[in-house]
Design a protein around this nucleic acid. Structure first.
Lengths: 218, 218
DNA sequence: AATTTTTGTTAGACTATTCTAACATTATAG
DNA sequence: CTATAATGTTAGAATAGTCTAACAAAAATT
């Protein structure tokens, strides 16, 4: 499988998680590649039985396509973890590098990285690392946005890996595992005031709260 | 610079170290790419001022080409070192993986690897790691082949990174840094009997002895 | 020096991935 | 339920890197 094909599968995989149906246009936007190009690549991947494709119908991954995509994402997230844990990178810096290293052809290389990291289950952004068969554990976290006043929760994962978002979270001094208590929600714009680890108060816009994924503390 | 261009520069760099003059055919053989393809790529790299090219003349790297090649080799050797030191790979397994990772676009990634390794000067095969400007330190080691009986020497580097050669060296229980004393040389085929670290005797063919690079102990 | 061999070059074609332009279908909105 | 907008498809061209076939120059051999 080529690097390009891998990127198409990965993108479709991510889009399929986020949306009910994925169109050629969605894939085109996500990859930043024009529709006709995507169209022909989708046909090619369809002929390889990695994507199910019918004209004018939404795109889906086949069983094999899902597995292949899962395995690439596994590599990506293992590498991200390695970059943070062993090379001292910030969680906002690792995506681009992992994007390249994920395509290295060497099962053993990734196995050794996995071992070195002691078989981590999540990456630095709290996203699950697919297993050796490309299976991704389902995470059912809540968006902090949906919490009510007085709700207590634990910061488990981020909903966006955008550089600017991650940098903001850093600046707010928020880290995965932190305890968050909702103090107040503005009626007007849903801005939240929260208490972090029972000691620092922060104000979060709705957009930020949407991308903070938490486990509710009952 | 593309991955392909980088591979051409690297190959020319290595060939230039081994031979007085490097022809298009040499480069073609070394890359396993047909002559016409090499010819056109050489022209392209010449237009980028990385290779000096005149029709029917031997190929040379420009100053810039040498630097670029040196930097790629630096990345390659740092990665090899990392794979051996931190991921437990054997020295016969690392070339292929390093061949891929050397093309990763991230100065910082390699800087961090360098730091993690505590700024090594040689790779697992004893080859020098070029500095941050792509400069390669000249090693003037001798071939064990050229040593006379009773000569004592230290195993510093290998002249070949071929898998089968490295595996053989492993099997002979030879490691970089070992003390070697020449006990006997067969007149007929130049086969050598040597004493390693004053304790184990080994018999080495001329071809093997040629690829064992040593520092003479006076 | 003439011929043959080796090496180098040119021309033209192929594949993968991308694009733009034109056209087709489906969805949306009066 | 048509008209328009949005989405999808086809056709054809561009680029990078590769190839084969044919020709050209240089080197080696007789």
């Amino acid at each position: 499988m080529t690097l390009t094909e891998e990127n198409y599968l990965k993108a479709l995989f991510h889009l399929s998680l986020e949306n009910e149906e994925v169109s050629v246009l969605d894939l085109s936007k996500s990859l930043n590649i024009k529709m006709p190009t995507v169209n022909s690549m989708v046909k090619k991947l369809s002929s390889k039985e990695l994507i199910s494709y019918e004209k004018y119908k939404p795109l889906t991954l086949t069983q094999g396509g899902k597995r292949a995509a899962g395995l690439i994402i596994r590599k990506h997230r293992l590498v991200e973890m390695f970059l943070v844990e062993h090379l001292g990178f910030g969680w906002d810096e690792v995506h681009e590098i992992a994007e390249q290293i994920e395509h290295i052809k060497s099962q053993k290389f990734f196995d050794r990285i996995d071992q070195l990291l002691d078989f981590p289950k999540v990456d630095p952004h709290g996203s699950p690392i697919p297993d050796i068969n490309g299976e991704v554990a389902v995470q059912n976290y809540n968006k902090l946005e949906e919490c009510l006043v007085n709700q207590q929760a634990t910061f488990m994962s981020v909903g966006s890996s955008q550089d600017s978002f991650l940098k903001l979270i850093d600046k707010l001094n928020l880290k995965l595992g932190d305890k968050i208590k909702v103090l107040e929600i503005q009626d007007f714009d849903k801005t939240m005031r929260v208490l972090v680890n029972n000691n620092s108060e922060q104000t979060l816009s709705q957009l930020v709260a949407t991308n903070i994924l938490v486990k509710l503390n009952v």
